[in-house]
Design a protein around this nucleic acid. Structure first.
Length: 460
RNA sequence: GCGGCUAUAGUUCAAUGGUAGAACACUGGUUUGUGGCACCAGCUACGAGGGUUCGAUUCCCUCUAGUCGCCCCA
Protein backbone atom coordinates (compact mmCIF):
# COMPACT_ATOMS: atom_id res chain seq x y z
CA UNK A 1 0.00 0.00 0.00
CA UNK A 2 2.76 2.36 1.02
CA UNK A 3 4.59 1.44 -2.16
CA UNK A 4 1.67 2.35 -4.36
CA UNK A 5 1.35 5.66 -2.57
CA UNK A 6 5.00 6.49 -3.16
CA UNK A 7 4.85 5.37 -6.75
CA UNK A 8 1.94 7.69 -7.41
CA UNK A 9 3.86 10.47 -5.77
CA UNK A 10 6.85 9.86 -8.01
CA UNK A 11 4.64 9.83 -11.05
CA UNK A 12 3.17 13.15 -10.03
CA UNK A 13 6.66 14.50 -9.42
CA UNK A 14 7.69 13.46 -12.87
CA UNK A 15 4.52 14.91 -14.39
CA UNK A 16 5.05 18.21 -12.56
CA UNK A 17 8.48 18.39 -14.06
CA UNK A 18 10.31 18.17 -10.76
CA UNK A 19 12.88 16.05 -12.45
CA UNK A 20 14.60 18.36 -14.88
CA UNK A 21 16.70 15.58 -16.37
CA UNK A 22 15.42 14.85 -19.82
CA UNK A 23 17.02 11.91 -21.54
CA UNK A 24 16.17 12.91 -25.08
CA UNK A 25 17.98 16.23 -24.76
CA UNK A 26 21.23 14.72 -23.54
CA UNK A 27 23.55 14.23 -26.44
CA UNK A 28 24.79 10.67 -26.40
CA UNK A 29 28.41 10.13 -27.11
CA UNK A 30 29.10 7.10 -29.25
CA UNK A 31 30.26 4.12 -27.23
CA UNK A 32 34.04 4.05 -27.10
CA UNK A 33 36.31 1.29 -25.88
CA UNK A 34 38.07 2.30 -22.72
CA UNK A 35 41.83 2.02 -22.62
CA UNK A 36 42.78 -0.28 -19.82
CA UNK A 37 45.79 -1.06 -17.69
CA UNK A 38 48.76 -2.69 -19.35
CA UNK A 39 49.34 -6.26 -18.37
CA UNK A 40 50.87 -6.73 -14.95
CA UNK A 41 50.49 -3.07 -14.04
CA UNK A 42 48.57 -1.90 -11.01
CA UNK A 43 47.08 1.37 -9.87
CA UNK A 44 47.75 2.21 -6.27
CA UNK A 45 44.37 3.55 -5.27
CA UNK A 46 43.62 6.02 -2.48
CA UNK A 47 42.53 3.30 -0.09
CA UNK A 48 45.84 1.48 -0.68
CA UNK A 49 47.97 4.49 0.10
CA UNK A 50 47.67 4.08 3.87
CA UNK A 51 49.73 0.90 3.60
CA UNK A 52 52.41 2.66 1.56
CA UNK A 53 52.57 5.57 3.97
CA UNK A 54 52.80 3.11 6.83
CA UNK A 55 55.74 1.21 5.33
CA UNK A 56 57.55 4.34 4.18
CA UNK A 57 57.19 6.03 7.54
CA UNK A 58 58.60 3.05 9.44
CA UNK A 59 61.44 2.70 6.95
CA UNK A 60 62.41 6.36 7.00
CA UNK A 61 62.62 6.41 10.77
CA UNK A 62 65.15 3.60 10.78
CA UNK A 63 67.15 4.79 7.77
CA UNK A 64 67.64 8.24 9.15
CA UNK A 65 69.14 6.98 12.37
CA UNK A 66 71.53 4.81 10.36
CA UNK A 67 72.66 7.80 8.31
CA UNK A 68 71.26 6.84 4.91
CA UNK A 69 70.69 9.60 2.37
CA UNK A 70 68.02 9.48 -0.26
CA UNK A 71 68.87 9.24 -3.93
CA UNK A 72 66.59 8.93 -6.97
CA UNK A 73 67.89 7.69 -10.28
CA UNK A 74 65.95 7.62 -13.57
CA UNK A 75 63.70 4.73 -14.46
CA UNK A 76 65.18 4.74 -17.95
CA UNK A 77 68.86 3.94 -18.44
CA UNK A 78 71.18 2.84 -21.19
CA UNK A 79 70.59 -0.90 -21.63
CA UNK A 80 74.35 -1.46 -21.45
CA UNK A 81 74.34 -0.52 -17.79
CA UNK A 82 72.29 -3.58 -16.90
CA UNK A 83 74.09 -5.89 -19.31
CA UNK A 84 77.36 -5.04 -17.64
CA UNK A 85 76.15 -5.12 -14.06
CA UNK A 86 73.20 -7.41 -13.51
CA UNK A 87 74.70 -9.70 -16.13
CA UNK A 88 73.74 -10.69 -19.63
CA UNK A 89 73.18 -14.33 -18.75
CA UNK A 90 70.77 -13.62 -15.93
CA UNK A 91 67.06 -14.25 -16.27
CA UNK A 92 66.35 -10.65 -15.43
CA UNK A 93 68.35 -9.26 -18.30
CA UNK A 94 67.93 -12.11 -20.72
CA UNK A 95 64.16 -12.31 -20.71
CA UNK A 96 62.59 -9.84 -18.34
CA UNK A 97 63.81 -6.37 -19.26
CA UNK A 98 61.65 -3.82 -21.03
CA UNK A 99 64.10 -2.76 -23.70
CA UNK A 100 63.60 -0.61 -26.78
CA UNK A 101 65.45 1.69 -29.13
CA UNK A 102 64.45 5.32 -28.67
CA UNK A 103 64.06 7.78 -31.52
CA UNK A 104 67.69 8.85 -31.27
CA UNK A 105 68.82 5.27 -31.80
CA UNK A 106 69.89 4.60 -28.23
CA UNK A 107 69.06 1.23 -26.76
CA UNK A 108 67.37 1.92 -23.45
CA UNK A 109 65.78 -0.16 -20.70
CA UNK A 110 63.42 0.41 -17.81
CA UNK A 111 65.40 -0.43 -14.71
CA UNK A 112 64.79 -3.98 -13.52
CA UNK A 113 66.66 -3.41 -10.27
CA UNK A 114 68.02 -0.46 -8.36
CA UNK A 115 71.68 -1.17 -7.72
CA UNK A 116 73.14 -0.46 -11.19
CA UNK A 117 71.64 3.02 -11.39
CA UNK A 118 72.92 3.94 -7.98
CA UNK A 119 76.41 2.63 -8.68
CA UNK A 120 76.39 4.54 -11.97
CA UNK A 121 75.47 7.71 -10.08
CA UNK A 122 78.19 7.04 -7.50
CA UNK A 123 80.80 6.92 -10.23
CA UNK A 124 79.36 9.69 -12.38
CA UNK A 125 79.18 12.18 -9.51
CA UNK A 126 82.56 11.32 -8.02
CA UNK A 127 81.11 10.13 -4.73
CA UNK A 128 84.42 8.46 -3.89
CA UNK A 129 85.47 11.96 -2.80
CA UNK A 130 82.88 11.87 -0.03
CA UNK A 131 83.62 10.30 3.35
CA UNK A 132 83.30 6.53 2.83
CA UNK A 133 81.15 4.57 2.98
CA UNK A 134 78.41 6.40 1.14
CA UNK A 135 75.08 5.14 2.43
CA UNK A 136 72.23 5.60 0.02
CA UNK A 137 68.64 4.54 -0.17
CA UNK A 138 65.88 4.86 -2.70
CA UNK A 139 62.27 3.86 -3.06
CA UNK A 140 61.89 3.12 -6.68
CA UNK A 141 59.59 1.47 -9.20
CA UNK A 142 61.23 -1.45 -10.99
CA UNK A 143 60.14 -3.20 -14.15
CA UNK A 144 60.37 -6.83 -15.11
CA UNK A 145 58.42 -8.38 -17.92
CA UNK A 146 57.29 -11.53 -16.17
CA UNK A 147 54.05 -13.42 -16.03
CA UNK A 148 52.03 -11.70 -13.31
CA UNK A 149 50.94 -13.72 -10.28
CA UNK A 150 50.45 -13.38 -6.55
CA UNK A 151 52.94 -10.84 -5.23
CA UNK A 152 54.42 -10.25 -8.64
CA UNK A 153 53.59 -7.51 -11.10
CA UNK A 154 55.51 -6.04 -13.99
CA UNK A 155 56.04 -2.84 -12.11
CA UNK A 156 56.84 -3.23 -8.47
CA UNK A 157 58.58 -1.11 -5.86
CA UNK A 158 61.58 -1.72 -3.71
CA UNK A 159 63.16 0.04 -0.83
CA UNK A 160 66.79 -0.28 -1.80
CA UNK A 161 69.81 0.32 0.41
CA UNK A 162 73.40 0.54 -0.77
CA UNK A 163 76.53 0.98 1.32
CA UNK A 164 79.28 1.89 -1.10
CA UNK A 165 82.98 2.05 -0.24
CA UNK A 166 83.32 -0.28 2.72
CA UNK A 167 84.64 -3.83 2.79
CA UNK A 168 84.11 -4.52 6.47
CA UNK A 169 81.79 -7.45 7.27
CA UNK A 170 80.07 -5.24 9.80
CA UNK A 171 78.31 -3.61 6.85
CA UNK A 172 76.42 -6.82 6.12
CA UNK A 173 75.53 -7.09 9.78
CA UNK A 174 74.20 -3.57 9.75
CA UNK A 175 72.05 -4.18 6.70
CA UNK A 176 70.65 -7.31 8.30
CA UNK A 177 69.86 -5.40 11.48
CA UNK A 178 68.07 -2.74 9.53
CA UNK A 179 66.01 -5.39 7.77
CA UNK A 180 65.26 -7.07 11.07
CA UNK A 181 64.17 -3.83 12.77
CA UNK A 182 62.05 -2.76 9.84
CA UNK A 183 60.17 -6.04 9.64
CA UNK A 184 59.86 -6.05 13.42
CA UNK A 185 58.27 -2.62 13.24
CA UNK A 186 55.92 -3.85 10.55
CA UNK A 187 55.03 -6.88 12.63
CA UNK A 188 56.42 -9.34 10.09
CA UNK A 189 58.43 -12.29 11.34
CA UNK A 190 61.34 -13.17 9.09
CA UNK A 191 64.11 -15.65 8.55
CA UNK A 192 67.23 -14.70 6.63
CA UNK A 193 68.94 -17.23 4.42
CA UNK A 194 72.58 -16.51 4.00
CA UNK A 195 75.58 -17.85 2.11
CA UNK A 196 78.90 -16.81 0.66
CA UNK A 197 79.67 -17.14 -3.04
CA UNK A 198 83.36 -16.36 -2.68
CA UNK A 199 85.37 -13.90 -4.67
CA UNK A 200 87.23 -13.66 -7.94
CA UNK A 201 90.18 -15.46 -6.30
CA UNK A 202 88.44 -18.54 -4.99
CA UNK A 203 85.29 -18.87 -7.07
CA UNK A 204 86.88 -20.04 -10.35
CA UNK A 205 88.45 -23.01 -8.59
CA UNK A 206 85.12 -23.89 -7.01
CA UNK A 207 83.30 -23.53 -10.30
CA UNK A 208 85.77 -25.89 -11.90
CA UNK A 209 85.16 -28.49 -9.19
CA UNK A 210 81.43 -28.03 -9.41
CA UNK A 211 81.33 -28.34 -13.20
CA UNK A 212 83.47 -31.46 -13.04
CA UNK A 213 81.07 -33.00 -10.56
CA UNK A 214 77.96 -31.92 -12.45
CA UNK A 215 79.29 -33.21 -15.76
CA UNK A 216 79.56 -36.64 -14.26
CA UNK A 217 75.87 -36.39 -13.38
CA UNK A 218 74.78 -34.49 -16.43
CA UNK A 219 72.13 -37.01 -17.45
CA UNK A 220 70.36 -36.55 -14.12
CA UNK A 221 69.96 -32.79 -14.54
CA UNK A 222 66.97 -30.92 -15.94
CA UNK A 223 67.14 -29.30 -19.37
CA UNK A 224 67.64 -25.78 -18.04
CA UNK A 225 70.47 -26.88 -15.81
CA UNK A 226 72.24 -28.58 -18.68
CA UNK A 227 72.47 -25.16 -20.26
CA UNK A 228 73.44 -23.54 -16.98
CA UNK A 229 76.36 -25.92 -16.81
CA UNK A 230 78.20 -23.92 -19.42
CA UNK A 231 76.69 -20.47 -18.95
CA UNK A 232 76.27 -20.05 -15.22
CA UNK A 233 77.01 -23.28 -13.31
CA UNK A 234 76.41 -21.79 -9.85
CA UNK A 235 72.74 -21.39 -10.68
CA UNK A 236 72.37 -25.16 -10.78
CA UNK A 237 72.76 -25.06 -7.00
CA UNK A 238 69.46 -23.35 -6.40
CA UNK A 239 67.44 -25.15 -9.06
CA UNK A 240 64.13 -26.25 -7.58
CA UNK A 241 63.74 -29.38 -9.73
CA UNK A 242 63.72 -32.51 -7.62
CA UNK A 243 66.20 -34.36 -9.76
CA UNK A 244 68.64 -31.48 -9.71
CA UNK A 245 68.33 -31.15 -5.98
CA UNK A 246 69.31 -34.78 -5.61
CA UNK A 247 72.43 -34.20 -7.67
CA UNK A 248 73.23 -30.99 -5.84
CA UNK A 249 72.89 -32.65 -2.44
CA UNK A 250 76.19 -34.45 -2.98
CA UNK A 251 77.89 -31.62 -4.85
CA UNK A 252 80.92 -29.87 -3.40
CA UNK A 253 79.82 -26.94 -1.27
CA UNK A 254 81.19 -23.49 -1.90
CA UNK A 255 81.84 -22.76 1.77
CA UNK A 256 84.42 -25.54 1.75
CA UNK A 257 86.47 -23.95 -1.00
CA UNK A 258 86.44 -20.32 0.03
CA UNK A 259 89.81 -18.62 0.22
CA UNK A 260 91.01 -17.56 3.65
CA UNK A 261 89.89 -13.96 3.26
CA UNK A 262 86.41 -14.97 2.16
CA UNK A 263 86.16 -17.54 4.91
CA UNK A 264 87.14 -15.04 7.60
CA UNK A 265 84.78 -12.49 6.14
CA UNK A 266 81.83 -14.88 6.15
CA UNK A 267 82.61 -16.11 9.66
CA UNK A 268 82.72 -12.51 10.85
CA UNK A 269 79.35 -11.74 9.27
CA UNK A 270 77.79 -14.71 11.03
CA UNK A 271 79.41 -13.75 14.34
CA UNK A 272 77.96 -10.27 14.14
CA UNK A 273 74.59 -11.71 13.16
CA UNK A 274 74.66 -13.97 16.21
CA UNK A 275 75.59 -11.06 18.42
CA UNK A 276 72.73 -8.97 17.02
CA UNK A 277 70.20 -11.80 17.31
CA UNK A 278 69.48 -11.82 13.61
CA UNK A 279 67.25 -14.80 12.78
CA UNK A 280 69.32 -16.43 10.06
CA UNK A 281 70.04 -19.84 8.68
CA UNK A 282 73.00 -20.65 6.42
CA UNK A 283 71.91 -22.00 3.05
CA UNK A 284 74.81 -23.53 1.09
CA UNK A 285 72.76 -23.54 -2.12
CA UNK A 286 71.77 -19.89 -2.14
CA UNK A 287 73.49 -18.12 -5.05
CA UNK A 288 70.98 -15.50 -6.34
CA UNK A 289 70.31 -14.56 -9.89
CA UNK A 290 72.51 -11.54 -10.31
CA UNK A 291 76.03 -11.78 -11.61
CA UNK A 292 77.77 -9.14 -9.56
CA UNK A 293 77.62 -10.67 -6.11
CA UNK A 294 80.80 -11.57 -4.28
CA UNK A 295 81.11 -13.10 -0.85
CA UNK A 296 77.93 -12.56 1.15
CA UNK A 297 74.50 -13.16 -0.38
CA UNK A 298 71.23 -13.33 1.54
CA UNK A 299 67.50 -13.50 1.11
CA UNK A 300 64.80 -12.43 3.50
CA UNK A 301 61.83 -14.79 3.81
CA UNK A 302 58.72 -14.81 5.93
CA UNK A 303 59.27 -16.98 8.99
CA UNK A 304 56.28 -19.19 8.18
CA UNK A 305 57.62 -20.12 4.76
CA UNK A 306 56.56 -23.64 3.90
CA UNK A 307 54.07 -23.79 6.77
CA UNK A 308 51.49 -21.41 5.40
CA UNK A 309 49.09 -22.86 2.81
CA UNK A 310 49.57 -20.00 0.38
CA UNK A 311 52.73 -19.80 -1.64
CA UNK A 312 55.52 -17.87 -0.02
CA UNK A 313 57.82 -15.49 -1.73
CA UNK A 314 60.99 -13.70 -0.71
CA UNK A 315 60.47 -10.33 0.92
CA UNK A 316 63.89 -9.04 0.04
CA UNK A 317 67.42 -9.95 -0.86
CA UNK A 318 70.87 -8.58 -1.26
CA UNK A 319 74.55 -9.10 -0.91
CA UNK A 320 78.04 -7.80 -1.39
CA UNK A 321 79.38 -6.66 -4.75
CA UNK A 322 83.02 -5.74 -4.29
CA UNK A 323 83.90 -5.72 -7.99
CA UNK A 324 80.87 -4.03 -9.54
CA UNK A 325 81.84 -0.40 -9.02
CA UNK A 326 85.22 -1.08 -10.63
CA UNK A 327 83.63 -3.07 -13.44
CA UNK A 328 81.34 -0.15 -14.22
CA UNK A 329 84.29 2.21 -14.62
CA UNK A 330 85.53 3.48 -11.27
CA UNK A 331 89.29 4.01 -11.21
CA UNK A 332 89.92 2.31 -7.94
CA UNK A 333 88.47 -0.67 -6.15
CA UNK A 334 85.28 0.22 -4.36
CA UNK A 335 83.79 -2.58 -2.27
CA UNK A 336 80.06 -2.31 -1.61
CA UNK A 337 77.04 -4.09 -0.26
CA UNK A 338 73.31 -3.58 -0.60
CA UNK A 339 69.84 -4.98 -0.43
CA UNK A 340 66.39 -4.51 -1.87
CA UNK A 341 63.14 -4.98 0.01
CA UNK A 342 59.89 -5.46 -1.87
CA UNK A 343 57.28 -3.01 -0.73
CA UNK A 344 54.26 -4.76 -2.25
CA UNK A 345 55.33 -8.02 -0.68
CA UNK A 346 55.65 -6.41 2.73
CA UNK A 347 52.17 -4.95 2.28
CA UNK A 348 50.77 -8.40 1.45
CA UNK A 349 52.10 -9.67 4.76
CA UNK A 350 50.77 -6.64 6.63
CA UNK A 351 47.35 -7.27 5.17
CA UNK A 352 47.49 -10.96 6.07
CA UNK A 353 48.03 -9.94 9.67
CA UNK A 354 45.24 -7.41 9.54
CA UNK A 355 47.46 -4.81 11.17
CA UNK A 356 45.62 -1.56 11.70
CA UNK A 357 47.47 0.96 9.57
CA UNK A 358 44.81 3.62 9.60
CA UNK A 359 45.90 6.90 10.96
CA UNK A 360 43.00 8.47 12.76
CA UNK A 361 42.37 11.39 10.50
CA UNK A 362 39.87 13.65 12.14
CA UNK A 363 37.95 16.12 10.07
CA UNK A 364 36.94 19.23 11.95
CA UNK A 365 34.34 21.38 10.28
CA UNK A 366 32.11 21.06 7.27
CA UNK A 367 30.83 24.32 5.86
CA UNK A 368 27.26 24.02 4.57
CA UNK A 369 25.39 26.75 2.78
CA UNK A 370 21.92 27.46 1.50
CA UNK A 371 21.15 30.06 -1.10
CA UNK A 372 23.33 32.20 -3.32
CA UNK A 373 24.25 34.91 -0.81
CA UNK A 374 25.13 32.37 1.81
CA UNK A 375 27.25 30.47 -0.64
CA UNK A 376 29.19 33.62 -1.47
CA UNK A 377 29.87 34.28 2.18
CA UNK A 378 30.67 30.62 2.88
CA UNK A 379 33.34 30.59 0.19
CA UNK A 380 35.29 33.23 2.09
CA UNK A 381 34.68 31.64 5.45
CA UNK A 382 36.01 28.32 4.20
CA UNK A 383 39.26 29.95 3.14
CA UNK A 384 39.62 31.79 6.43
CA UNK A 385 39.17 28.61 8.43
CA UNK A 386 41.61 26.74 6.26
CA UNK A 387 44.27 29.40 6.80
CA UNK A 388 43.66 29.18 10.54
CA UNK A 389 44.69 25.52 10.35
CA UNK A 390 41.21 24.10 10.78
CA UNK A 391 40.52 20.94 8.78
CA UNK A 392 37.57 22.07 6.71
CA UNK A 393 35.37 20.43 4.15
CA UNK A 394 32.69 21.58 1.74
CA UNK A 395 30.59 20.79 -1.22
CA UNK A 396 29.49 24.14 -2.50
CA UNK A 397 28.03 22.67 -5.65
CA UNK A 398 25.35 20.83 -3.73
CA UNK A 399 22.17 22.82 -3.11
CA UNK A 400 20.22 20.95 -0.50
CA UNK A 401 21.19 21.00 3.13
CA UNK A 402 20.23 17.36 3.40
CA UNK A 403 22.79 16.36 0.82
CA UNK A 404 25.46 18.47 2.47
CA UNK A 405 24.88 17.05 5.93
CA UNK A 406 24.80 13.58 4.46
CA UNK A 407 28.22 14.15 2.97
CA UNK A 408 29.59 15.72 6.15
CA UNK A 409 28.45 12.63 7.98
CA UNK A 410 29.97 10.20 5.52
CA UNK A 411 33.27 12.03 5.57
CA UNK A 412 33.38 11.96 9.35
CA UNK A 413 33.20 15.64 10.20
CA UNK A 414 32.67 16.46 13.86
CA UNK A 415 31.11 19.89 13.37
CA UNK A 416 29.05 21.52 10.73
CA UNK A 417 28.68 25.24 10.15
CA UNK A 418 25.37 26.09 8.55
CA UNK A 419 24.91 29.36 6.77
CA UNK A 420 21.53 30.15 5.20
CA UNK A 421 19.61 33.20 4.00
CA UNK A 422 18.36 33.96 7.50
CA UNK A 423 21.80 33.76 9.06
CA UNK A 424 23.25 36.06 6.44
CA UNK A 425 20.55 38.62 7.22
CA UNK A 426 21.06 38.30 10.98
CA UNK A 427 24.83 38.15 10.68
CA UNK A 428 24.91 34.87 12.58
CA UNK A 429 25.83 31.27 11.86
CA UNK A 430 24.77 27.86 13.16
CA UNK A 431 27.23 25.41 14.70
CA UNK A 432 26.02 21.84 14.68
CA UNK A 433 27.71 19.10 16.67
CA UNK A 434 27.42 16.08 14.41
CA UNK A 435 27.79 13.65 17.28
CA UNK A 436 25.05 14.96 19.52
CA UNK A 437 22.99 16.70 16.88
CA UNK A 438 22.79 19.78 19.07
CA UNK A 439 23.14 23.06 17.25
CA UNK A 440 23.56 26.60 18.35
CA UNK A 441 23.33 30.02 16.78
CA UNK A 442 26.30 32.33 17.32
CA UNK A 443 27.37 35.74 16.06
CA UNK A 444 29.17 35.44 12.73
CA UNK A 445 32.10 37.52 13.98
CA UNK A 446 32.86 34.96 16.68
CA UNK A 447 32.81 31.92 14.43
CA UNK A 448 36.55 31.32 14.22
CA UNK A 449 37.30 31.63 17.91
CA UNK A 450 34.27 29.52 18.75
CA UNK A 451 35.25 26.77 16.34
CA UNK A 452 38.78 26.69 17.65
CA UNK A 453 37.49 26.49 21.19
CA UNK A 454 35.27 23.56 20.31
CA UNK A 455 37.97 21.70 18.46
CA UNK A 456 40.21 22.04 21.47
CA UNK A 457 37.49 20.93 23.83
CA UNK A 458 36.67 17.90 21.68
CA UNK A 459 40.41 17.12 21.56
CA UNK A 460 40.47 16.77 17.81
C1' G B 1 58.16 -18.69 -21.49
C1' C B 2 54.83 -23.19 -19.71
C1' G B 3 50.25 -25.20 -17.13
C1' G B 4 45.17 -25.08 -14.20
C1' C B 5 40.86 -22.04 -13.25
C1' U B 6 38.04 -17.64 -14.49
C1' A B 7 35.73 -13.35 -17.42
C1' U B 8 27.93 -10.53 -16.61
C1' A B 9 26.72 -3.09 -13.62
C1' G B 10 31.63 0.81 -9.81
C1' U B 11 31.75 -3.78 -6.31
C1' U B 12 29.95 -8.79 -4.76
C1' C B 13 27.04 -12.30 -7.04
C1' A B 14 22.51 -14.55 -10.03
C1' A B 15 19.69 -16.42 -14.21
C1' U B 16 19.13 -17.86 -19.38
C1' G B 17 20.10 -21.38 -26.70
C1' G B 18 15.03 -16.44 -27.71
C1' U B 19 19.75 -10.09 -25.69
C1' A B 20 19.74 -10.06 -18.49
C1' G B 21 18.23 -9.60 -12.25
C1' A B 22 19.49 -8.59 -7.05
C1' A B 23 22.30 -6.49 -3.10
C1' C B 24 25.66 -2.74 -1.85
C1' A B 25 27.64 1.79 -3.95
C1' C B 26 26.61 6.23 -6.76
C1' U B 27 23.16 10.50 -8.52
C1' G B 28 18.60 12.97 -7.80
C1' G B 29 14.09 13.34 -5.08
C1' U B 30 10.40 12.79 -0.59
C1' U B 31 7.88 21.79 -0.14
C1' U B 32 16.86 24.09 -1.81
C1' G B 33 16.47 24.70 6.18
C1' U B 34 18.87 19.70 8.85
C1' G B 35 23.03 13.71 8.40
C1' G B 36 23.22 8.49 10.43
C1' C B 37 16.94 5.42 9.27
C1' A B 38 13.16 4.73 5.61
C1' C B 39 10.85 5.26 0.85
C1' C B 40 10.76 6.54 -4.67
C1' A B 41 13.29 7.06 -9.11
C1' G B 42 17.64 7.11 -12.09
C1' C B 43 22.49 5.32 -13.74
C1' U B 44 25.56 1.60 -15.22
C1' A B 45 27.18 -4.91 -17.56
C1' C B 46 27.24 -10.09 -20.90
C1' G B 47 36.17 -8.70 -22.23
C1' A B 48 37.43 -8.90 -28.01
C1' G B 49 37.10 -11.63 -32.57
C1' G B 50 35.62 -15.88 -35.18
C1' G B 51 32.55 -20.47 -35.64
C1' U B 52 28.02 -23.89 -34.80
C1' U B 53 22.73 -22.22 -34.90
C1' C B 54 16.80 -19.51 -37.60
C1' G B 55 18.80 -17.15 -33.25
C1' A B 56 24.78 -17.33 -28.70
C1' U B 57 25.66 -13.74 -22.87
C1' U B 58 24.87 -19.21 -22.72
C1' C B 59 28.04 -24.38 -26.84
C1' C B 60 33.13 -24.61 -29.53
C1' C B 61 37.89 -22.15 -31.07
C1' U B 62 41.40 -18.06 -30.95
C1' C B 63 43.00 -13.71 -28.64
C1' U B 64 43.16 -10.45 -24.48
C1' A B 65 43.04 -9.84 -19.37
C1' G B 66 42.62 -11.57 -14.32
C1' U B 67 43.84 -15.36 -10.85
C1' C B 68 46.65 -19.51 -9.00
C1' G B 69 50.97 -22.47 -9.76
C1' C B 70 56.04 -23.69 -12.40
C1' C B 71 60.61 -21.12 -13.75
C1' C B 72 62.75 -16.86 -11.70
C1' C B 73 62.51 -13.02 -8.44
C1' A B 74 61.06 -8.34 -4.55
Amino acid sequence: MKKIKNLTKTLIDNFMGRRPKNKTIIKKRGKVKPITLLRGMKDILPQEQVYWDYVKEKALNILESYGFKKIDTPVLENSGLFLRSTGKNTDIVEKEMFTFVDEGGTKVSLKPEATPGIVRAYIEHGMHNLPQPVKLYTISPLFRRERPQAGRTRQHHQLDLEVVGDKDPVVEAQLLTIAKSLYDDLGIKIIIKINSVGCIECRPQYEENLVAYLKKNKTKLCAVCKKRLTKNPLRVLDCKEDKCRKVVADAPQIVDSLCNECKTHFTKVLEYADELNIPYEPDPYLVRGLDYYTRTVFEIWPEDVGKSPSRQVALGGGGRYDDLVGDLGANNDVPACGMGLGIERAIIKIKEQKTDVNKKTVQHVFVAQLGEKARMKALGLFEKLRKEGVKVGENFSKGSLRAQLDLANKMGFRFCLILGQQEVLDDTILIRDMESGIQEEIAYAKVITEIKKRIKKAKL
